[in-house]
Nucleic acid binder design. Structure first.
Length: 754
RNA sequence: GAUCGUGUAGCUCAGUUGGUUAGAGCGCGUCGUUGACAUCGACGAGGUCACUGGUUCGAGUCCAGUCACGAUCACCA
């Protein structure tokens, strides 16, 4: 008899078990032959069951982590939830695909590599585009595997043979194909518009990549011709071209449509008074100065009233040549200088010192955003949003929890066009070429005033133009989220609609991700999926929350409360960590996790191990044949035995129901409770007497019951705690009908047995 | 400012079609265990389910309002 150690030590098992799984091929689903031969077809018609055609496939695309990223507890959470679904459906016999991959993460990766270069005394600009991109690829080769190695250590049973990277050849093809199709439909256009510009990252960013930070600053009330109005940024006054008031504001009724000369620090200038709903009559004096070049709102006002656009700040965040003595100053310096001059001229009425306002910062680098006019590419969102909204309204796409549907609708209703070009080097280069003769300077930005853009002769294609020497490709790359938006289908072979994976697994079953990227990612996937494939890319969206510490604080380095999933799983076991992340949490809500909770589930793993140890040792003590312990055999089960078995079957049924309804916490908690407080504390305790003193026949009956329940529990718990359950499965006596590996075993179900 | 969410035991949270004495883990108290169990078991204390009102035979659960906290969106007028 083999000695089973009295304690379960995860480290003795996990790595080995993972490699057994991986080698077994269990992670890779079988795709049935798409075009069945006539023989196969007739075989199917004749009703002979074929494992893969009988069941519908189940597919999840894994949200791709950043290539250069390091595994954090949030990854561990989504891996756990997705792995639970994957293992559950796989055990149910459905061909199950969980497709992993990584994201090139434009700005993030570029700045990481750039910083590393700067440490070495060089920089991205010094190297030039080509060399720099080579450097980033080297980084990707070197560090890109780290994150996927770490995903394995958390037990992710995903199909590594289908691993993808957003800059792979196939996915890049999908990106340019998508761009071209949208362009041809008029859904992508180029425009000179005021955009959110990050002077630090030196690129435009999308509206939803802007974050707001509270700041206390000065608020200047200035004399402005016949008006008095207030601003926190007097330096933008140099770019003013209008004053806006609300159409219903009686105070200014007679001024609307007239032009006034305004006294300014660089001499007098002319503004027009326009009536626009953007002006709130209740705020301040009800009149606002309009600086179309340096405010997105003002730009929109300018468009509505056909106002001139005057740019005075450049892409480095400095005052431009047309600002006279202020030229070259940073905006903050210029502000002080201008205020001083205005005070001398008596143009300042008063200054509020403690004005609370929000400043726009870049979500990547935290630098202050400087809206400037710039020529960028945009996606026309309205038509896409309408379809995407309908898909959720109709129930074609379900969001769990449901309340996020409202948030989703709100976003869709108030959507603005999406700026997709980025002035970066790392990413998908925009598949647009300009004809050299006509538009050498097509990318010149910062044109003064409202110079119209000449539409250059352009070529949009998935491959370069046939005579490339005459063309020059757009310098910019696409927003990372553009390629992410295609992820559920680009990874399956789209645009090749005949690709077997695409045909078989698309649309995917579930999209599991954090509620924080509902807009960035989920919404855009739905829009792109509907537009490009005519189908929503998934049927259900399951949103999880943020992982917080046990006091419900955000995890941060400065608080020192960051849980490193690799440390945790080394210390308590991956299974314990997984249980801690899943039990006691519900969709869309944040999760509090600390060592105490994880420890509790470490004990649970150990409990389960000892339950098994007890049952196995009792089997091996006797002379009973394993095949004689099957419930189908003639056994003298007591009434109690039958009740216990019935109770267990009820648990199995409920587990299935909970999992089908995405109630992972309830399933996990119920199994925990049953295993420990029912099976161990009652059923096993009561069995002891019969095992020690009962007749052979009675012993056999009890033992058969214990073994039956134990094996069932292992199956039910396997999606949650795959390692211990598999480790136990490896040492438990099995009958000939049972699978060697628990991962490939059938899901415990007893439909129609009673 | 708009919208959404949360408020249940000392702490972290479950409680999804309204139905008997409101649950778990951790923590706490008493006792017992070292022949499955880096422990484990038995028993226990602890709750006006934020507050007010309503619907109902019956409300933690549904409705209205109040308070507190949080999030998202909009905003540098």
């Amino acid at each position: 008899m083999k000695e089973i150690p009295p304690a379960y030590n995860p480290q003795d098992h996990e790595a080995q078990i993972y490699s057994i799984w991986e080698k077994s091929g269990a992670f890779t689903p079988e795709v049935p032959n798409e075009t069945p031969t006539s023989a196969e077809a007739s075989e199917r018609d004749s009703g002979s069951p074929s494992a893969n055609t009988a069941k519908k496939p189940f597919a999840i695309s894994m949200p791709p982590p950043n290539v250069t990223g390091k595994l954090h507890i949030g990854h561990a959470l989504f891996i756990t939830i997705q792995d639970i679904m994957t293992r559950y459906h796989r055990m149910k016999g459905e061909p199950t695909l969980w497709l992993p991959g990584t994201d090139h993460a434009g700005i993030a990766t570029q700045s990481v590599v750039d910083k590393a270069l700067q440490k070495k005394g060089t920089s991205r600009r010094e190297l030039g585009r080509e060399k720099f991109v080579e450097e980033v690829w080297k980084w990707k080769q070197q560090y890109g595997d780290e994150i996927t190695r770490q995903l394995r250590s958390v037990g992710a049973s995903c199909d590594w043979s289908r691993e993808r990277f957003t800059l792979d050849e196939g996915l890049s093809r999908a990106v340019s194909e998508a761009f071209k199709r949208l362009y041809d439909k008029g859904l992508i256009y180029q425009g000179l518009r005021t955009v959110n510009w990050c002077p630090k990252c030196h690129t435009a960013i999308a509206d939803d990549e802007v974050e707001y930070k509270k700041e206390t600053g000065k608020f200047y009330h200035i004399k402005y011709g016949p008006f008095t109005l207030a601003t926190a940024r007097p330096e933008t006054k140099l770019g003013d071209t209008a004053v806006a008031v609300h159409p219903s504001d009686k105070r200014y009724k007679e001024m609307v449509g007239k032009k006034y000369m305004i006294k300014g620090v660089l001499g007098d200038f002319e503004i027009e008074v326009v009536a626009d709903n953007a002006a709130d009559p209740k705020f301040g004096t009800g009149a606002i100065k309009v600086t179309p070049a340096h405010s997105l709102i003002d730009f929109e006002i300018a468009q509505r009233h056909n106002l001139p656009i005057k740019q005075v700040i450049d892409e480095n965040g400095r005052m431009m040549q047309n600002t006279g003595k202020y030229a070259g100053m940073k905006t903050r310096e210029a502000r002080e200088a201008i205020v001083e001059d205005m005070q001398k001229m008596g143009l300042i009425e008063k200054i509020d010192e403690n004005y609370q306002h929000n400043i726009a910062v870049c979500y990547r680098c935290g630098g202050q955003i400087e809206p400037i006019p710039s020529k960028q590419w945009f996606v026309k969102m309205r038509p896409l949003a309408e379809k995407a909204k309908k898909a959720v309204e109709s129930g074609e796409v379900k969001i769990v929890p449901k309340r996020f549907e409202k948030v989703y609708f709100q976003w869709m209703d108030n959507i603005r066009d999406w700026c997709i070009s980025r002035q970066l080097w790392w990413g998908h280069r925009i598949p647009v070429w300009y004809y050299k003769q006509e538009d050498q300077k097509s990318k010149v930005k910062n044109q003064n005033d409202n110079e119209k853009i000449e539409n250059p002769k352009i070529y949009v294609g998935t491959t370069p133009p046939p005579d490339p020497e005459n063309w020059i490709q757009d310098e910019d790359v696409l927003d990372t989220w553009f390629s992410s938006a295609l992820w559920p289908f680009s990874t399956l072979g789209w645009p090749d609609e005949q690709a077997s994976d695409y045909k078989y697994f698309y649309p995917t079953s579930v999209m599991e991700t954090g509620y924080d990227i509902l807009f960035f990612w989920v919404a855009r996937m739905v829009m792109m999926g509907l537009e490009l494939t005519d189908k929503p890319p998934f049927k259900t969206v399951y949103l999880h929350g943020l992982v917080r510490d046990e006091q419900n604080r955000k995890m941060s380095k400065s608080l020192g409360n960051v849980l490193d999933p690799l440390d945790v799983s080394a210390k308590f076991g991956t299974d314990a960590m997984r249980m801690a992340l899943v039990v006691g949490t519900t969709a869309g809500n944040d999760i509090a996790v600390g060592e105490g909770k994880i420890k509790g589930y470490r004990n649970f793993s150990n409990k389960l191990w000892n339950i098994a140890r007890f049952v196995i040792s009792n089997i091996e003590d006797g002379s009973i044949q394993i095949n004689d312990l099957e419930l189908s055999k003639d056994l003298k089960l007591s009434k109690q035995d039958e009740q216990d078995i019935k109770k267990f079957k009820e648990i199995a049924k409920k587990t299935t129901e909970y999992l089908d309804k995405f109630q992972f916490s309830r399933a996990g908690e119920m199994l925990y409770d049953f295993t420990w407080h029912e099976f161990a504390d009652k059923i096993i305790e009561q069995a002891k007497d019969r095992l020690n003193n009962g007749s052979e026949e009675d012993k056999r009956a009890v033992l058969a019951k214990l073994l039956f329940i134990l094996k069932g529990i292992l199956g039910l718990l396997h999606p949650f705690i795959p390692f211990v359950t598999e480790a136990i499965w490896q040492i438990i006596p099995k009958t000939s009908g049972e699978s060697e590996l628990l991962i490939s075993h059938a899901w415990p179900t007893y439909e129609g047995e009673d």
